[in-house]
Design a protein around this nucleic acid. Structure first.
Lengths: 154, 154
DNA sequence: CAGATATTGATAATCTTTATCAAATAATAA
DNA sequence: TTATTATTTGATAAAGATTATCAATATCTG
């Protein structure tokens, strides 16, 4: 749903609509969020900005992520260990496959999710607003390096 | 998969197998976990124990929850806002329906999840170990009280 | 360009969870 | 039953992540 450039413009629209100012720091954070495929952490975003904005405060990154979240333009993915990661490309709920080794996150496209939502509504009586679906496992790369160290063959 | 009593005994087995001691505090925490249907927080467990164990330390609850988690006998359900809740009845992954108003959590039984896992394996190359599926919405009770305050009718 | 307001940076405060360590306790064997 | 040993507990400090505070700065509107 939209190239990084389109996402960037869409977010700028939302900000203008809601009377928020377009500061260089804010724009840089958005730029990273819409271009990144890695679902970065706040810390990672902060580090990526160090070069261009040496005086950037960590609080600024937190504030802007919270703002974009409240505007529905960023998806927060929080984990039991307390870490949070952010997706500015697809701010709507979608499944994730997360590597427990290297922490890589990829987005598999699955059908049949609307189906599940309807089932839950029926069985629980809940009005469903959103959902969260994560698969945890080991990615192909980590499986390979695992096999190498195990010494398959001889 | 097992009544609270059965779960209780099963957890005791696991503890003995792994050479852990059966302290009154530990047993009380397990008792709450296997009998509770509310997916309690650590804080909630701590408060429930105040009556019987006035000197109970919060750290003890944390320690035992971590232990039971590591033994695979408790499922941790962490949320983006940082809160964690625990399920000692069904320590294996299963879907949840969570009320965003009253924070109630219920377990709808859904089929077709093994299906999804296979799909993810195919499309990502991941070896899937576990998953997490949560639906967020408003439960029947909260929907009703919402309608009342809205003054349906006149 | 000037004025009003939002945002930033620096840092303190908060909140949750983990680590530390002496004292208490459970399991084991004599 | 008692002594021994290792684990666990309670109290508290420490750590880590996020939020709040507030003066200084920068943006937007006209």
């Amino acid at each position: 749903m939209g190239s990084p450039q389109q996402r960037y413009q869409q977010i700028l629209c939302k900000l203008r609509e809601s009377n928020h100012k377009l500061t260089p720091q804010r724009l840089a954070i958005i730029d990273i969020l819409v271009h990144s495929r890695s679902h970065p952490t706040v810390e990672a975003i902060f580090e990526m900005l160090q070069e261009d904005f040496p005086t950037m405060s960590l609080a600024t990154v937190y504030r802007n992520v919270v703002l974009l979240k409240s505007l529905g333009e960023v998806l927060e993915i929080g984990f039991p260990d307390g870490s949070n990661r952010y997706d500015g490309n697809k701010p709507y709920p979608h499944p994730h496959a997360i590597c427990v080794r290297c922490k890589k996150i990829v987005d598999p496209d699955l059908r049949a999710l609307g189906n599940l939502t309807a089932q839950v509504r029926q069985r629980t009586g809940f009005k469903i607003l959103t959902h969260r679906l994560d698969f945890f496992g080991v990615c192909r790369d980590c499986l390979q390096s695992e096999n190498q160290t195990k010494g398959v063959g001889r």
